[in-house]
Write a protein that binds this DNA or RNA. Structure first.
Lengths: 218, 218
DNA sequence: GTCTATATCAAGATAGAC
DNA sequence: GTCTATCTTGATATAGAC
């Protein structure tokens, strides 16, 4: 009967740890199911069972479906892109551009749930004003990380000083998202090199332009 | 029996015309409700009543919820962008770029349902393999129209001959989609001029680069 | 802390009236 | 051709057992 007092060697968990582990497993499952079925289409029952628990366990850890979804937004929102952008910070410019290209293909092809979840978050935001700002904030985080990369990239390439790294980061981020989504449903139209090629055009154009206005005939 | 042979003066509708009108009204309502609630979140009851009809009328015109959704995809999928791109075909290059910029802001700010519907279609496609190709096809149509615009734009700007109009059209389209979505949840990060500015960089860079695109023989 | 059982409700779809 | 009434299912959330 003294099960709990046994030696905690071999990964025996305290109650708090067990609960935290359950929470984490539920969040993982939620990410999968929400991505595959959508917010409304996903049932809490499927999420719970997919994590290996029952509905009761889910409601013991989260107040409901929406709370679980929003928790997921906080946890996963910043993850991938911010992390990648930070990793690129240390890398030289030319390699960074190539690396970004590879990252695009990798995410689009392998982490298929990622783009779906992003789309779900976006839709939830435009439909629920009370979380719009929260979702907007999670998109700003990775974009700011990217802005850092762009700042050094522009400097190293000797771009005109009046070019806004923020604008470039926004453009690169938007292009990335657009291409990932398109590649997902029409891979042939987005070959592996396209993103890198586009970045090449972009940076060349930025360098060549002395003013940020497009009405500048060369 | 001779109902159909009555004079159609004074907007009296034949049975076929009445049915067609009902169908059209249901499709309009469906576009609204699907955009606002999502495919799963939207109820056929709300769609029917939003169009001013009952559930029965809906099922008399469409075999079910999915059929209605897919019908919408065929009707609205090509609409906006293809139409716009074709209009741009006649316009000179410089004006076309500026016009595209204005179009972005207009769509993002005014036709709010458009982007939501697009996102719904995309999600439905990645989740339902049997319609993936259909959705992909509807994205190809406007992209091909855009490709025509890009071809003349590149020629007028004297771009290297080995630059693929198809690649440029894909990039411009993806960037457009990405920026529209971002502006929807974070307008400050996508100022009105950003799209035009990005296009300027892009075309300048294309002109300056002699680097060949991967040989693309259509 | 987690599970089982259940109350409550809303949705998709159908059948027959008009 | 459209409407009303209804069948059936599956969902969220809760309450009490272990």
């Amino acid at each position: 009967m003294n099960v709990e007092s046994e030696e905690p060697r071999r990964q025996r968990l305290t109650r708090a740890e067990a609960k935290a582990r359950t929470r984490a497993l539920l969040l993982d499952a939620a990410a999968r199911v929400f991505a595959r079925k959508g917010f409304t289409g996903a049932s809490v029952e499927e999420i719970a069972e997919s994590a290996g628990f029952s509905i009761g366990a889910l409601y013991s850890n989260f107040s409901g479906k929406e709370a679980l979804f929003l928790e997921l937004l906080s946890d996963r929102g910043r993850d991938r892109v911010a992390q990648a952008a930070k990793a690129l910070h240390d890398v030289g410019t030319e390699e960074a551009v190539a690396e970004l290209g590879r990252l695009l293909v990798d995410v689009a092809d392998n982490d298929t749930d990622f783009a779906s979840l992003q789309a779900e978050f976006w839709l939830y935001a435009v439909r629920n004003p009370h979380v719009l700002e929260t979702v907007a904030a999670t998109t700003r985080e990775p974009r700011q990380a990217l802005e850092g990369v762009m700042r050094t990239a522009l400097a190293q390439r000797g771009a005109p000083g009046d070019v806004s790294p923020q604008a470039v980061a926004t453009v690169v981020g938007a292009l990335w998202q657009g291409l990932v989504r398109l590649r997902r449903i029409d891979p042939d139209s987005v070959p592996e090199e396209l993103f890198g090629q586009a970045l090449g055009w972009l940076f060349t154009g930025i360098n060549a332009s002395d003013t940020p206005t497009p009405a500048d005939t060369d």
